[in-house]
Design a protein around this nucleic acid. Sequence first.
DNA 1: CGATTCTTTGAAAACAGTCAATCTGTGTGG
DNA 2: CCACACAGATTGACTGTTTTCAAAGAATCG
Lengths: 193, 193
Amino acid sequence: MEALFHYIRKYSSIAVSEEDFELIKSHFTYKRLRKKQYFLQEGDVCRYFAFVLKGAMRQYYVDEKGMEHVVQLAIENWWVGDRESWVKLSPSRYTIDAWENSELLMISYQDVVKLSQLFPSLAEMMRKMDESNNIATQKRITSAISHSAERRYADFALEYPEILRRFPQYVIASYIGITKDTLSRIRKQGLNN
Amino acid sequence: MEALFHYIRKYSSIAVSEEDFELIKSHFTYKRLRKKQYFLQEGDVCRYFAFVLKGAMRQYYVDEKGMEHVVQLAIENWWVGDRESWVKLSPSRYTIDAWENSELLMISYQDVVKLSQLFPSLAEMMRKMDESNNIATQKRITSAISHSAERRYADFALEYPEILRRFPQYVIASYIGITKDTLSRIRKQGLNN
DNA sequence: CGATTCTTTGAAAACAGTCAATCTGTGTGG
DNA sequence: CCACACAGATTGACTGTTTTCAAAGAATCG
């Protein structure tokens, strides 16, 4: 629970008192998920965004041919959820499941809006979260459209070593938009340079 | 100038008075750019984010081999700038230039922070802008990693017909991450279906 | 019309995907 | 402790897609 408190403080310039945090905390729902359990299934509305206290989560999209495409991975102190579905309450095209046994703190959009009005520090945190998310996705797009598979993997390994360690290669491959076979060959190739 | 006022009202649930708008407006700098002129050059700090009043802008990244990769396109009522550089005042890796003669309203990050404190409606607009930006980039990533070039073009044409109309094919090709040659062949192919 | 910008095309090469088989490591139950 | 199952990684042969490069063909504009 304290992890969220630290997170809010880290991303906010405005102090949050213990009492304020108690009230904020009361709007979050604690949830434990076992490995392979779903947090969100395709077609359902993503009612909650979740802060990952512990564990590792995977968000993916299943195409017409039944292939899974990983769009996001999250570990401790990251947020997970389908933003569009959460905001608009529209059915999601994504599936989110637990890759490891995980613990989450979930909150609805409504509650975030309400709490943001009460606590500017929370609003600021949310804004900064959005901001860094925007910056990160911009980088990912730049990488996806302009770099080779090899370069994309190298960049990923450098930027997210912890994620690399906790998910199998075929999940990472999907995240960077290539097949597990190609990633295997790239890694082999990379050793000789 | 009125376009920005309409934009703020559209994205904010809180009313903005004419007086408030006057004060907000006073923090924006009007700028006119001729076709091909730079708004931002690689290596410079992106001190301003800009609201496009008129015209069309292109943001791209130049790789080691000198090839240009379009990361963003913007027309009327869109925002343009390098988010990371603007927030952190770090040198940008991107170049932004005017594709058509354009008119912009520019604002610094500092001023946005200051104005957001004075006007909740502006803060809300910024948040929603971030939100829809996040949703849009998420879609673009999903598309980039999981769809074929053909599908990516079809999706783009459907979602942004106006942009398609105003930029040449080779710019669009770069935006969706393929070469102009490949896009030309895809379009030819598409006609026979 | 002449210059410039943009698009199309062909042929070859580079790159990535597919599928099936094999290999490797890990953990479980007998 | 072994045998086995299981998840994941690797490999080879093949196919398919996209890039590259150079040349030629539209289209647009002053």
